[in-house]
Amino acid sequence: MPHDTSEQHHPHSLLPSDPALRVKALETLLVKKGLIDPKSIDEIINTYENKIGPQNGARVIANAWVDANFRDALLKDATASLASLGLSGRQGEHIVAVENTKATHNMVVCTLCSCYPWPLLGIPPSWYKSDAYRARAVREPRKVLSEFGVHLPEEMNVRVWDSTAEIRYLVIPERPENTAGWSEEELIKIVSRDSMIGTALVVVPT
C-alpha cells in the first residue's frame, strides 16, 4: 500500500470540509454501496454510550478491593480473570492490572495514538487523546497529575505505562482507608474513570 500520497492530495481532502458533512457523505456512500448498515453504526454508538464504559472497570476494582483472591488473580493474569467475567473484546484483548500502593503510583498513556482498555473504561475522554497528555505524561507525569489536582509526595515512585503494543493497562487505585465495611455496591460508586487511568486518587466524597 502506498503510504505517502501527499504529493497528489490525500483522498480525504476530496470530501466536504465540514466534518459533520464529511462523515455524512462517507456514510451515505458506503450505505449506497451496500457495505455499511446504518443501524449497525447506531448500535455501535449505543454500545459505547450505554453498555461498555467505566462502570465495567469500577465493578472490577470494587471486587478486587473486597476479594483478595480475585485481586491476586487479577494481578497475576488480568486477561483470564476478566474474560471469566465477560470483560474482554475489542481494544482489551490483553489486559495487565497494576496496583497503586503507598510507595508507587501508576498512570497510563499512549504516546503514539490513544490506546485504551475499551471493554473496561469505554471510549477515552478528549484529554487522554490530546497532544498535551500524550506528549507530557511520560516526561513530566507529576506536573500532569497536578493539573488533575493530584499532588504526590516526592518519595513516592511514579510508574508511567506507555501503551505501545496491544497490552492495555488498568490501574487498581488504593482503597480509601475510611471505607472499611462498605459493600461492593457502595465502593463501585466512588471508583472514578480517572482513578483507573491513574490521573486521580479514589476519595470518599464529603
Binding site: I45, S126, F148, A200
Partner: peptide
C-alpha cells in the same frame, strides 16, 4: 496544560463523533 473533564464529558461530544467511530 492538560484539560481534565473529571468524568463530565459525554462519551461522544457531538453526534458526528459517534458516527465516525461507528463507521
Amino acid at each position: 496544560f492538560v484539560a481534565p473533564d473529571f468524568g463530565k464529558e459525554p462519551v461522544f461530544k457531538t453526534e458526528w463523533h459517534g458516527r465516525v467511530l461507528g463507521l
